[in-house]
């Protein structure tokens, strides 16, 4: 039995803006499932529905084998939720917040201390500080403690690393790894594609629909074209010129580099491309083939291919 079962979920807000369109997927027990997509893809709406905060328009949805509409109070007992924005009491101390949320679930801090100990150790020096005065990373750690203190069997993390520094982000994902070992199913959303590879399975969302869903490795394997990267001194200039290059390919800036996906045989396309760059007096180096990242896959799957 899956921890989450979603069949044909639809949700639209007023003015017929569809937030979620015919979404169906299952999350297995003990899995770290990633919901990956840019802002506005419908990630938060999905989380709000699964955590029983808002009602879906239609669809068959069960969380921990319980119906999200009929048994919502039952579901609330055994899930933990870390919302996208910091939602603890800023004027209560770190310790008071933890005690407060533990009590809401009729449990005590010491009951499940073993579960949160590694994170709690880091918070201990600040336990008498007001939660509102913590740094971004510390706030998220406290919020995670509060979401875990009743030992939920299912944990929802809505963009837990947005606005958190890279070091803390890495740390946060290490913590998630240890949570998984406690047999807690984790469903996590993120706009950062690099984090997606850390999940067991991911669903790529765009405009309220699932673009693809699989293990990160499988998604990368299914990449449809051949990906090349090149470095240039003036990426803006190059992008402008590339508009005049016609091929069965997709190109986009990737950091300071240009990525180009060829959908045709590169033995002819690549020399054509190099020629084009030469004709337009573009200096470049490191034109090499690379394995795509999840971000490349996302772009490949969502961009309209330029037809010849």
């Amino acid at each position: 039995m899956p921890a989450i079962h979603i069949q044909n979920l639809n949700k639209s807000y007023s003015h017929k803006i569809s937030a979620l369109k015919n979404v169906s997927f299952d999350v297995a027990e003990g899995e770290v499932f990633g919901v990956v997509g840019p802002d506005g893809a419908g990630k938060s709406t999905l989380f709000n529905i699964l955590t029983t905060l808002i009602l879906p328009d239609s669809g068959e949805i069960s969380v921990l084998h319980k119906d999200i509409i009929k048994d919502y109070l039952e579901i609330r007992k055994s899930i933990g939720y870390l919302p996208g924005t910091f939602s603890l009491y800023p004027d209560l101390t770190v310790e008071e917040n933890l005690i407060f949320f533990a009590t809401m679930y009729k449990s005590r801090i010491k009951d499940n201390m073993s579960l949160i100990r590694p994170i709690w150790q880091q918070l201990l020096p600040f336990k008498n500080r007001y939660a509102g005065k913590l740094s971004g990373g510390m706030k998220q750690k406290l919020a995670l403690c509060c979401a875990l203190i009743h030992k939920p069997s299912l944990l929802f993390l809505d963009e837990p690393t947005t606005g958190v520094d890279p070091v803390s982000r890495k740390e946060f994902w290490e913590i998630l790894g240890s949570i998984k070992q406690q047999n807690i199913t984790v469903i996590v959303s993120t706009p950062y594609m690099d984090e997606a590879t850390l999940c067991d399975r991911i669903a790529l969302f765009k405009d309220g629909s699932i673009v693809t869903m699989d293990t990160p490795q499988q998604i990368i394997q299914n990449f449809a074209g051949t990906l090349y990267t090149l470095r240039t001194s003036n990426i803006f200039n190059l992008l402008n010129i590339m508009k005049h290059f016609s091929c069965n390919c997709t190109f986009y800036p990737y950091g300071e580099n240009l990525h180009i996906i060829f959908y045709e045989n590169t033995s002819t396309a690549l020399p054509q491309f190099e020629n084009f760059l030469k004709e337009n007096h573009q200096s470049y180096d490191h034109l090499t083939q690379i394995t795509p990242t999840i971000e490349d896959c996302f772009i490949e799957l969502t961009s309209q291919k330029i037809a010849l």
């Binding site: 905060l53 919302p83 939602s87 009491y89 800023p90 809401m104 509060c146």
Partner: peptide, 12 residues
């Protein structure tokens, strides 16, 4: 400040 959401997901 969003705390009501955090309260609402508890079984209270």
């Amino acid at each position: 400040i969003g705390t009501i959401e955090q309260i609402n997901v508890t079984p209270i």
